[in-house]
Simulated assay, not measured.
Amino acid sequence: MTFQDIVFVVFSVIMLLSGLRVVTAKNPVHAALFLVLTFVSASALWLLIEAEFLGIGLVLIYVGAVMVLFLFVVMMLNVDVEVLRHGFWKNLPLACVVAAIMVSELILLIKARGADVASTVDVMHTASNSKLLGKLLYSEFIYPFEIAAIILLVALVAAVGLTFRKRKDSKYVDPGKQSKASSKDRIKLVSMSAEKFVVVEEPAAEQTDVQQ
């Protein structure tokens, strides 16, 4: 067994165990951190097969952006884990059957495409992974790539539109009105009559003659 095989086994075991802990951890913050570990291990496996662009993209996009957002949301919402885990063990057998079917389909797909993968190994060694991916995206898959970009843009605009709501009790400043203001608008002189001081006379103290 070579050193590359040992590294592959180590990262694969870490990825499987951390993926299992994602669905079994009681604390949602711990589950999110285990998911980060799963993504990092998967990125290391991408780097082992010389898919540098996918490995770095997985770390930058999912670990650096998506999972940080997940952690903020989980910490702010204070999710009730007991409600989310209700019925977990009851549905576990069905989930295992579905997972076994998915794994078997992947194994059959890898065996069927094994010859094609072996024939492209020499090409991957002679050219950059990012360069080959760019050529495929902007030549054969240009229309699906543009459609996916439009769908993501629409989803982004919809998310902003759903969160943007006007509140009647909110106070804000209009920069346009501020820039149009002049010195006459800022200072307003009010003419007021002078105040008159009224002297109030105190009543004289009653004097009583004490006759002895």
Rank of each mutant, 00 (worst) to 15 (best):
M1W: 07
F3T: 10
F3N: 11
I6E: 12
I6C: 07
V7D: 04
V7N: 04
F8H: 05
F11V: 03
V13G: 05
M15Q: 03
L17S: 11
G19T: 02
G19N: 10
G19A: 13
V22K: 01
T24S: 08
A25Q: 02
N27L: 01
P28V: 00
H30T: 14
H30M: 13
A32L: 06
A32I: 10
L33T: 14
L35A: 02
L35G: 00
V36F: 02
L37F: 15
T38E: 10
A42E: 08
A44M: 12
W46I: 03
W46S: 09
L47H: 11
I49F: 01
E52P: 04
E52K: 07
L54V: 04
I56S: 10
L58A: 03
L60E: 10
A65Y: 06
A65F: 10
V66L: 15
M67Y: 02
V68A: 05
L69Q: 13
F70Y: 13
F72H: 13
V73P: 02
V73C: 06
V74A: 01
M75H: 02
L77A: 15
L77H: 14
E82S: 15
E82M: 05
V83T: 15
F88S: 09
K90A: 06
L92H: 04
L92I: 05
V98Y: 09
A99V: 09
V103H: 04
S104G: 13
L109E: 04
A115L: 09
A115Q: 05
A118C: 08
A118I: 03
M124R: 14
A127E: 14
S128W: 02
L133H: 00
L136C: 02
L136A: 12
F141R: 12
Y143M: 14
Y143V: 15
E146F: 15
V154Q: 01
V154L: 15
A155F: 10
L156Y: 09
A158D: 05
A159G: 08
A159L: 09
V160W: 01
F164S: 08
K166A: 13
R167A: 07
K168L: 13
D169W: 12
Y172W: 15
V173Q: 01
G176S: 11
Q178Y: 07
S179Q: 09
K180Q: 14
A181Q: 09
A181L: 12
S182C: 05
D185R: 00
I187C: 03
K188D: 02
V190S: 05
S191K: 07
S191H: 06
S193R: 05
A194D: 11
E195I: 09
E195V: 14
V198I: 11
V200N: 08
V200T: 08
A204P: 03
A204K: 12
Q207C: 04
D209K: 13
